[in-house]
Design a protein around this nucleic acid. Structure first.
Length: 476
RNA sequence: CGGGGUGUGGCUCAGGUGGUAGAGCGCUACUUUAGGGAAGUAGAGGCCGCAAGUUCAAGUCUUGUCACUCCGACCA
C-alpha cells in the first residue's frame, strides 16, 4: 500500500474502499458508465487488459486440448427448462426476447446467462460414438444476467467471459477434466496475474445450478473480502439425462456422457484492481499490463530529448513500451502512469542524457533507480521479472496474514466482528447450519479447500461432529 | 425486491422567502514554462432530467414520471 497519496482525485482505500475502487476504475480509464443501466463501456485501457487475459488464458487452454467454438446467444424457453435445477437457478435473472420485429414470437427466448443448455442441445446431435469423445469446447462471448445492483467488472448485466463445456465417456474422465481446468485457472492467476488463490470445492448450498460438484478458486481482496475468481463444475450425467445425450460405447452399450463446464469472466479484472491497487491507482502485473514501460521525456522541447526517448523506445522493442510525448507537464505524466498501473516508467531528460543515465521508477514500490543507459535493456528485463515476483509475494503475504483459524463459535464470531479475511473452521456439513451462519454473521462458505486440515472434531458453529474444514468469508 | 440519496455547461457543484444562469476544474488557441497533476491572455460551451400544474413570471413551489446512485436480500 502506498505511504503517500500523490493524486488527489482518488479516494484513499482506508477512507472508503468502495469509492476507492470506483475512482481507480475511472481514473485508470478502464471503463465508462453507459446509459444502458447496469452495463459498462469498456475503454481501450480496460479492454487491452481483457485481450491479454484472453490471449494468455487461451494459450493455456489450447495446451490442454481445448477447441474454440461459438454458440447462439438466444435460448428458447423450452430448452432452458430441460434441467430443473438449472432453470431455477437462472430464470430469476434472465432477459427475455419476445418480439421479432413487430410480431410476437411463438416461443420467447432468453439471452444466454450461460450456455450449458445450448451445448447440451448441440452435443445431443453431434455425439454418437465413443469415438466422438471427448468433446472439449470453449467459447469466448458475453452473457446477460439481469442483476439488480451492479458494479464495474464485479457485477454488470452483461459481462464478457469464456465458458468451457466438455463431454466425456466416463465419470472419472469428467472429474479429471474438472480439476485440470481449475488448476489451469489457479496457475494462470498466480503466474500471470500474481494473484494467489485458495482452491477448493463449493458446498451444496453454493454450488452451480445443476452441477454435481463445483470447484472454485477464491482470492482475497485488499479489504479482506473474497472474490470467486474462476469456477469449474462437474455435471456428472445429470444434464446428459435431461437432454438425452447418449453414445454407443466400445461394448456396444448405449450410455450417457459425463459433462463439465468452467468459466472465468471480466470480473477477474476487478480482482486485479483490488489485489494489487493502491492509493495512487491501479498497479498491473507486468505479465498482463498492456503497456509495461512508459518513457517520460523531461523538458521534451529541448534539443535531442524526444529523439533520445524514441531511441530508448526502439531499444526496448522486446517489451510493450510507449513514449508519453503529450504536451503535459512531467508531473502530470508521472501521475497518469501511476493511475494507469503501468509497471514502470523511464524518466529521461537533459541531465540524464548528459550523464549517460536515466531514472527508472517502479510502479509497485515507487522506488527510483538510476540506470546507466547501456544497461537499460537488461535492467528493464530484470525489473519485469522482479516486479511480477514481488507482487505475487506481497499478495500471498496479505492472504496469509488475513487468514485466521477458529475452533469454537465464540472465537469464530469474535474474529468476524473485528476483522475481515478468511477464517478456516470445521463444519458439520449441514446446510441448515451453513444457512444460519450466513443469516446471523453475514459470512458465507467460500470453499472446502483441497488442502484439508483437522482443526478440531466439532463444527465451529453448532458443535456437532465435524466433517470438513471450510474457508469462510464475506464475498463480493 | 425493500430502504435512503441525487438530477443545473464535459466533470464537481453554488444558486435564502419565485424576477429570466454562475464558479472551479476540464476543453480550444497563442505565449511563457518543465525532474511529482505549471502560469498568463483570449475563447467555446447550458430550452436547469422529462411532463403537466400554480403564477404576470418557475432552476426555485405542486403533482406525476424517468434515470442514476448508495445500503440491505439474491447472484460470477
Amino acid at each position: 500500500m502506498a505511504e503517500k497519496k500523490l493524486v488527489e482525485a482518488i479516494t484513499s482505500m482506508s477512507e472508503d474502499f468502495a469509492q476507492w475502487y470506483t475512482d481507480v476504475v475511472k481514473k485508470a480509464e478502464l471503463i465508462d458508465y453507459s446509459n444502458v443501466k447496469g452495463c459498462m463501456v469498456i475503454k481501450p485501457a480496460g479492454y487491452a487488459i481483457w485481450e491479454n487475459i484472453q490471449k494468455r488464458l487461451d494459450e493455456r487452454f489450447k495446451a490442454v486440448g481445448v477447441e474454440n467454438v461459438y454458440m447462439p446467444m438466444f435460448i428458447p424457453e423450452s430448452l432452458l427448462q430441460k434441467e430443473k435445477d438449472h432453470v431455477e437457478g437462472f430464470a430469476p435473472e434472465a432477459a427475455w426476447v419476445t418480439y421479432g420485429g413487430s410480431s410476437p414470437l411463438q416461443e420467447r427466448m432468453c439471452v444466454r446467462p450461460t450456455s450449458e443448455t445450448l451445448f447440451c442441445d448441440f452435443y445431443k446431435g453431434d455425439i454418437q460414438s465413443y469415438r466422438d469423445l471427448p468433446k472439449v469446447y470453449n467459447q469466448w462471448c458475453s452473457v446477460v444476467r439481469w442483476e439488480k445492483e451492479t458494479r464495474p467488472f464485479l457485477r454488470s448485466r452483461e459481462f464478457l467471459w469464456q465458458e468451457g463445456h466438455t463431454a466425456h465417456a466416463t465419470a472419472d474422465e469428467a472429474e479429471e477434466r474438472t480439476e485440470q481446468m481449475l488448476n489451469v485457472y489457479a496457475d494462470f492467476c498466480e503466474e500471470v496475474l500474481a494473484i494467489p488463490v485458495v482452491k477448493g470445492r463449493k458446498t451444496e448450498k453454493e454450488k452451480f445450478a445443476g452441477a454435481e460438484a463445483t470447484y472454485t478458486i477464491e482470492a482475497l481482496m485488499h479489504d479482506g473480502k473474497a472474490l470467486q475468481s474462476g469456477t469449474s463444475h462437474n455435471f456428472g450425467d445429470g444434464f446428459a439425462k435431461a437432454f438425452g445425450i447418449q453414445f454407443t460405447d466400445k461394448d456396444n452399450q448405449l450410455k450417457y456422457v459425463y459433462q463439465t463446464s468452467w468459466g472465468m469472466s471480466t470480473r477477474i479484472i476487478g480482482a486485479i484492481i483490488m489485489v494489487h491497487g493502491d492509493d495512487s491507482g491501479l498497479v498491473l502485473p507486468p505479465e498482463i499490463a498492456p503497456t509495461q514501460v512508459m518513457i517520460i521525456p523531461i523538458q521534451q522541447k529541448k534539443e535531442g530529448v524526444l529523439d533520445k526517448a524514441y531511441e530508448l523506445r526502439d531499444r526496448l522493442k522486446n517489451f510493450r513500451v510507449k513514449v508519453d510525448d503529450s504536451d503535459k507537464s512531467p508531473g502530470w505524466k508521472f501521475s497518469e502512469q501511476e493511475m494507469r498501473g503501468i509497471p514502470m516508467r523511464v524518466e529521461i531528460g537533459p541531465k540524464d542524457i548528459e550523464a549517460g543515465k536515466c531514472v527508472i521508477c517502479r510502479r509497485d514500490t515507487r522506488e527510483k533507480i538510476e540506470v546507466e543507459l547501456e544497461k537499460l535493456e537488461e535492467t528493464v528485463a530484470g525489473l519485469i521479472t522482479k516486479i511480477q515476483a514481488d507482487m505475487l509475494d506481497r499478495a500471498r503475504k496479505h492472504l496469509e496474514e488475513h487468514t485466521y483459524t477458529a475452533t469454537c463459535r465464540e472465537e469464530f464470531e469474535k474474529i468476524f466482528s473485528q476483522k475481515t479475511g478468511f477464517v478456516k473452521a470445521m463444519w458439520c456439513g449441514d446446510r441448515s447450519c451453513e444457512e444460519e451462519i450466513k443469516e446471523n454473521m453475514g459470512v458465507s462458505s467460500r470453499c472446502m479447500p483441497f488442502n484439508q486440515e483437522c482443526l478440531s472434531d466439532t463444527c465451529v458453529y453448532c458443535g456437532k461432529s465435524a466433517k470438513k474444514m471450510v474457508y469462510w468469508g464475506k464475498a463480493y
